[in-house]
Simulated scan of single mutants.
Amino acid sequence: MTELSREKIVDGAPALSGDELRAALAGLPGWELAEDGKSIHREWRFKTFKAAAALANLAAWQAEAANHHPDIAFGWGFARVSYSTHSAGGVTRNDLIMAARLEAAMG
């Protein structure tokens, strides 16, 4: 588990600058900043629908526990998770924490 994944979710966290995001994403392989700079996302490929649904469920349960919810899309062979903090108008440290927690849970 990374240090980032151990951090606490903080209400009212501000949106991060582009430079801060790029630096943080270097420690989250596979995660990308959206073109508009307002969200981060990652997509996984699987051999079965069941595996994709399991990842979607994992992200959903983590979100409920932290009260910080991503957009999740999945189907046969894929799952995509996107984090953004709408109240901040972009990506906050909370979004990075949730991405790191999901990565840690996946092993």
Score class of each variant (00 low, 15 high):
residue 38 K to G: 11
residue 10 V to T: 12
residue 23 A to I: 15
residue 34 A to K: 02
residue 63 A to F: 00
residue 50 K to D: 15
residue 106 M to N: 09
residue 83 Y to P: 03
residue 24 A to F: 11
residue 77 G to D: 01
residue 75 G to Y: 03
residue 60 A to W: 00
residue 9 I to D: 08
residue 21 L to I: 14
residue 78 F to V: 05
residue 17 S to T: 14
residue 56 A to T: 07
residue 10 V to S: 12
residue 6 R to W: 01
residue 49 F to W: 05
residue 38 K to E: 15
residue 99 A to L: 03
residue 53 A to F: 05
residue 21 L to T: 09
residue 4 L to F: 05
residue 78 F to E: 09
residue 106 M to D: 09
residue 4 L to Y: 11
residue 78 F to T: 11
residue 106 M to Y: 07
residue 62 Q to Y: 02
residue 84 S to F: 06
residue 39 S to D: 04
residue 60 A to P: 00
residue 85 T to H: 02
residue 27 G to R: 00
residue 73 A to L: 08
residue 22 R to L: 15
residue 61 W to D: 15
residue 46 F to I: 11
residue 63 A to M: 01
residue 70 P to H: 02
residue 92 T to M: 06
residue 13 A to Q: 03
residue 98 M to I: 05
residue 44 W to Q: 06
residue 7 E to R: 13
residue 104 A to H: 03
residue 59 A to T: 10
residue 50 K to E: 14
residue 45 R to W: 04
residue 37 G to N: 08
residue 92 T to H: 00
residue 90 G to I: 02
residue 47 K to Y: 07
residue 34 A to C: 11
residue 99 A to C: 03
residue 29 P to R: 10
residue 50 K to L: 13
residue 9 I to K: 04
residue 1 M to H: 08
residue 85 T to K: 02
residue 17 S to Y: 00
residue 99 A to Y: 00
residue 51 A to R: 11
residue 50 K to R: 15
residue 64 E to I: 04
residue 31 W to K: 13
residue 31 W to V: 14
residue 68 H to A: 04
residue 102 L to P: 01
residue 55 L to F: 01
residue 39 S to K: 08
residue 11 D to V: 13
residue 87 S to L: 10
residue 1 M to Y: 09
residue 52 A to Y: 00
residue 70 P to N: 09
residue 44 W to I: 07
residue 12 G to Y: 00
residue 64 E to M: 04
residue 99 A to N: 07
residue 77 G to S: 05
residue 16 L to R: 00
residue 92 T to Q: 02
residue 90 G to F: 01
residue 85 T to M: 05
residue 86 H to S: 14
residue 8 K to R: 13
residue 100 A to Q: 07
residue 22 R to E: 15
residue 33 L to V: 14
residue 58 L to E: 06
residue 55 L to H: 10
residue 17 S to C: 08
residue 9 I to T: 10
residue 84 S to V: 07
residue 80 R to V: 09
residue 9 I to M: 01
residue 54 A to Y: 00
residue 2 T to M: 09
residue 97 I to F: 01
residue 59 A to S: 05
residue 51 A to H: 06
residue 105 A to E: 08
residue 20 E to W: 02
residue 107 G to W: 02
residue 25 L to T: 13
residue 13 A to N: 05
residue 75 G to D: 03
residue 33 L to N: 11
residue 104 A to M: 06
residue 102 L to K: 06
residue 3 E to P: 14
residue 23 A to M: 11
residue 97 I to Q: 04
residue 103 E to T: 15
residue 87 S to C: 13
residue 6 R to M: 13
residue 15 A to M: 04
residue 42 R to Q: 10
residue 91 V to N: 08
residue 93 R to N: 09
residue 49 F to L: 10
residue 62 Q to G: 14
residue 12 G to R: 02
residue 35 E to M: 03
residue 4 L to D: 12
residue 96 L to K: 01
residue 70 P to C: 12
residue 28 L to H: 05
residue 14 P to T: 10
residue 89 G to T: 12
residue 50 K to S: 15
residue 66 A to Q: 09
residue 49 F to E: 14
residue 48 T to Q: 05
residue 97 I to H: 03
residue 65 A to V: 04
residue 64 E to Y: 06
residue 68 H to W: 01
residue 57 N to T: 11
residue 27 G to V: 14
residue 49 F to Y: 08
residue 69 H to A: 11
residue 38 K to C: 10
residue 4 L to Q: 12
residue 88 A to N: 06
residue 103 E to S: 13
residue 30 G to P: 01
residue 23 A to G: 10
residue 32 E to Y: 05
